[in-house]
């Protein structure tokens, strides 16, 4: 209105469109001042058989406090991690984690993996996560714990492979990139792994352990922000059942 002079000009100004620089804060028909994304107030995710509402803290003055508000821990071992756990594995942010919850997790096509040790998991986790510690996912493919984890993720143990099949797979046929001599990952689920945040090495170790046994890199995702950034944005966490 600053350029409007007189009634006529004033009326003309009233007819002007709303300029893009006028920022809307919240929607009139939404009770959520702090939405998950521009289009989503909240979502539901199944955690240990119960539906949990995932949202952000609605107090715009909320400030993170407690353990995850700390800016540093002794390094080593709590050293900043590279953006990527492995060059072949996609790193993701919060929006992608939320999309994963709404799609792969809900449809049974993926697992959200809290790769921390059980004592961390019990302190609180991201809803929908299952606890599969890096200590398990760093083991060899023949280790019973690793084998059980891989089977849980949908991988299948392979029986003896004939010479002809081996040859054809060597040529890249029969989805060879999804198989090792011991495991068939064709039906394996997508895994989104996370731990305590940018200075946590637990999920990167898990990612590398899975790659080591042949889990396809395109089925692995690394949420580097982890619990610290999840908390920073005031996103819901849950205490798992014992």
């Amino acid at each position: 209105m600053r350029n409007c002079v007189g009634m006529i000009l004033g009326l003309a100004c009233l007819m002007q469109p709303v300029w893009a620089e006028e920022v809307k804060v919240g929607e009139a028909d939404s009770e959520f001042a702090v939405k998950l994304t521009e289009d989503t107030d909240y979502l539901h995710v199944v955690h240990q058989g119960k539906s949990v509402k995932v949202q952000r803290v609605q107090d715009p003055n909320y400030e993170l406090r407690g353990y995850f508000a700390k800016t540093g821990r002794k390094c080593p071992p709590f050293c900043l991690q590279p953006m990527h756990a492995d060059p072949a594995v996609t790193s993701v942010g919060e929006v992608e984690v939320l999309e994963f919850m709404e799609n792969e997790l809900r449809d049974g096509q993926g697992f959200l993996i809290d790769a921390r040790t059980p004592s961390w998991f019990q302190k609180g986790t991201i809803p929908g996560s299952i606890n599969m510690p890096f200590t398990v996912l760093s083991k060899g493919e023949d280790d019973p714990e690793m084998a059980a984890a891989l089977e849980q993720f949908g991988a299948k143990r392979r029986g003896p492979v004939g010479a002809m099949t081996k040859t054809l797979e060597g040529w890249g046929l029969f989805e060879a990139e999804q198989k090792t001599a011991a495991w068939d990952f064709t039906e394996a689920k997508q895994l989104l792994l996370w731990c305590n945040g940018p200075a946590c090495g637990q999920s990167p170790r898990a990612v590398r352990g899975l790659l080591e046994v042949g889990y396809p890199a395109d089925k692995l995702f690394y949420y580097r922000g982890g619990m610290q950034i999840w908390q920073l944005f005031g996103l819901t966490t849950v205490i798992p059942d014992a």
Binding site: K50, Y67, V238
Partner: peptide
């Protein structure tokens, strides 16, 4: 870690 995480919902409150 002292006490519950600030954004935690307890099982009853969080689960419908």
């Amino acid at each position: 870690i002292a006490g519950p995480l600030p954004t935690v919902v307890d099982g009853e409150a969080g689960a419908e």
